[in-house]
Design a protein around this nucleic acid. Structure first.
Ligand SMILES: [Zn+2]
Ligand SMILES: [Zn+2]
Ligand SMILES: [Zn+2]
Ligand SMILES: [Zn+2]
Lengths: 142, 142
DNA sequence: CACATTTTGTGATAATATAACATATCATTA
DNA sequence: TAATGATATGTTATATTATCACAAAATGTG
């Protein structure tokens, strides 16, 4: 057993070797990774072929523990940045794929409460907004 | 050339046979379909094998024209329901996969303005919220 | 018509994700 | 400690979603 302190909670979880490796990688990278990027980055560390199933199973576990979030619109996984409270929001640039995570701001929290009041039970994953980031807009004007 | 009147605009587009078939199917079904569901449903109508590429190309065109929206978190495509103004929001049930489209309500519009003011240029696709619908919650309590 | 542009047809392949089943490890208690 | 059940891992195969590449056909324009 091992105590993990995250932004939103202190969890006591059985963090086996594989699960720890996936979590550490995501913590090091501080950016969203696809399952297959995780496989490629982990192979040198672990020193043998890693099957997709193994990584997906680790990710499922880490998602259940709220240690990791999935960006469902781009099929990538990330740890919550330092100091983040759930569930937050992400701005995803469709040009450069940059992802900016931030806390849910007031209107979004209000929207979530409104949805909850209607009887729909929201999950705890970030809401994903898609568009073009400021940098890419500037590039377009050149 | 052909004039199409949608919820948000009247577009004059060249709607070729394939594109028309995909659009009509989505209009008939009034629910989100995956590209491969579209292929399966279209085959009997068209009478020959339809390649994925063909369907994805039609969908790309219809997306560009804002005749269709993509639910990026579940890889499905739908026409906007009668009377919808863009960009709207969707509630997606993770248990039964039911999708409920609705207009962006006030707090969400406010949130969108806030994001726009920060310099991020949002696209016109619906924002997708995930959770468990009321019906599935009731089922769980049995 | 000649020519450029757009659309279509088609095969191959990439990227993402799960099913199924055998084996191994861990936890509980007889 | 040995038996047992629960959990985790290893592995192969397969399902699902999406794009690349290139040739042929249709369409628009002067
Ligand atoms: Zn949490
Ligand atoms: Zn960008
Ligand atoms: Zn539109
Ligand atoms: Zn449901």
């Amino acid at each position: 057993m091992q105590v993990i302190t995250t932004e939103c909670q202190t969890v006591e979880v059985k963090l086996t070797g594989n699960r720890k490796a996936v979590l550490l990688l995501l913590q090091q990278q501080q950016r969203p990774l696809s399952a297959y990027e995780i496989i490629d980055l982990l192979r040198p560390q672990i020193g043998r072929i890693i099957h997709p199933m193994l990584v997906y199973r680790c990710l499922d576990f880490l998602l259940e523990q709220h240690l990791v979030v999935k960006l469902v619109s781009v099929n990538k996984f990330m740890v919550l940045p330092e100091g983040a409270t759930e569930p937050g929001q992400c701005l995803i640039c469709e040009r450069c794929q940059a992802v900016t995570f931030s806390q849910s701001s007031n209107p979004l929290q209000q929207q979530r409460r409104k949805i909850a009041a209607s009887g729909f039970k929201l999950n705890q994953q970030p809401v994903e907004f898609h568009g073009i980031c400021q940098a890419c807009q500037k590039d377009d004007n050149k």
